[in-house]
Simulated scan of single mutants.
Amino acid sequence: MTAAASPPETWLRRFGPPADGPVRLVCFPHAGGGASSFHSLARALEPGADVMAVQYPGRQDRRHEPPLTRLSELADAIAGVLEASVVRDGTPYALLGHSLGALVAYETARRLDRSGATPHRLFVSARCAPTVAAGPTDHLADDDALLAEVRALGGGDALDDPEVRAMALPALRADYQALRSYTWQDGPALRCPVTAMTGTQDRLCTPAQANDWLRLSVVPGRARTFRGGHFYLQDRVTDVAQALLMDLGLRTQQAAAAGTTAA
């Protein structure tokens, strides 16, 4: 069975029993990351949102599967899985992607939007809009450069362990290959609002650059800024959860404490 033809349970993870919230949030990990990177956020969002995280092939409990090296293949497969499961049961749903996951979530949202299964909202985090020229990645073609890049972004402590590094590198190689091969194709704007989120010290995407995401939808969105670097989402779990709940329409005043720039 190919990755694209795998059943939903192959792709989607929960961190406990389904939450009894009115909205389902599907989360897309960063390059080299797995579904477990959203465990803390899922807990912080309970019981307001039912959180599921995507598990890409080639990592964690799918580490024996070959990873996909084209972003379009990931988006095609995940859109099909969501149409067969999340969309079918009728629960309103939103997508959240961090870093590489922001692009995968966006391309997945485009596919679902075209099929008439428009998400309730799209959250994109720590990644510039695909309409903005990304920095070159040719220098990341070997393992040492990849590891140096991950460490520079603040996400590489676990990679000091040789066993962890050996397990993580195949997924990292595949994900950065997917980034290098990705080219944005013009098309209809999304019909759902977009929340663009970034850290104040993220060298890959500044708060000003994050605003470009808002031009990719016909529905007004907003930009949110949180203190921290590229992995602010792991350091500011409570603030991020409050902001997500507010933008999902599940909470209002409680999110006021989160660092926010409306656009």
Results as ranks from 00 to 15, higher is better:
Ala152Thr: 11
Leu140Gly: 00
Asp144Ala: 11
Gly135Ile: 08
Leu179Thr: 02
Glu149Lys: 08
Thr131Tyr: 10
Pro162Asp: 10
Leu169Phe: 01
Gly135Phe: 09
Met167Tyr: 11
Ala152Lys: 12
Ala134Thr: 04
Ala168Lys: 01
Ala171Arg: 03
Phe123Pro: 01
Glu149Cys: 04
Pro162Ile: 04
Ala145Gln: 04
Ala126Trp: 03
Pro136Met: 04
Ala158Thr: 10
Ala152Met: 07
Arg127Gly: 09
Arg121Pro: 06
Gly156Pro: 11
Met167Phe: 14
Asp161His: 08
Asp157Pro: 01
Ala133Pro: 10
Ala145Phe: 02
Ala174Ile: 12
Thr131His: 11
Leu122Lys: 06
Ala126Ser: 12
Asp161Pro: 10
Leu172Glu: 04
Ala168Arg: 02
Gly154Leu: 04
Ala152Ile: 03
Arg151Asn: 14
Gln177Trp: 10
Asp138Phe: 04
Ala148Pro: 05
Asp144His: 12
Met167Pro: 07
Arg121His: 12
Phe123Thr: 08
Ala129Gly: 07
Gln177Arg: 14
Ala148Trp: 10
Ala178Glu: 13
Asp161Glu: 14
Glu149Pro: 09
Arg127Trp: 13
Asp175Leu: 03
Gly135Met: 11
Arg173Trp: 14
Gln177Tyr: 09
Val164Tyr: 00
Leu122Phe: 06
Ala129Cys: 05
Asp142Val: 06
Ala145Ile: 03
Glu163Gln: 03
Asp144Phe: 02
Ala134Asp: 11
Leu140Asp: 05
Gly135Asp: 13
Asp157Gly: 02
Arg173Asn: 04
Leu122Trp: 03
Ala134Lys: 09
Ala178Trp: 13
Leu153Gln: 08
Arg173His: 10
Pro170Ala: 04
Arg151Trp: 06
Arg180Cys: 15
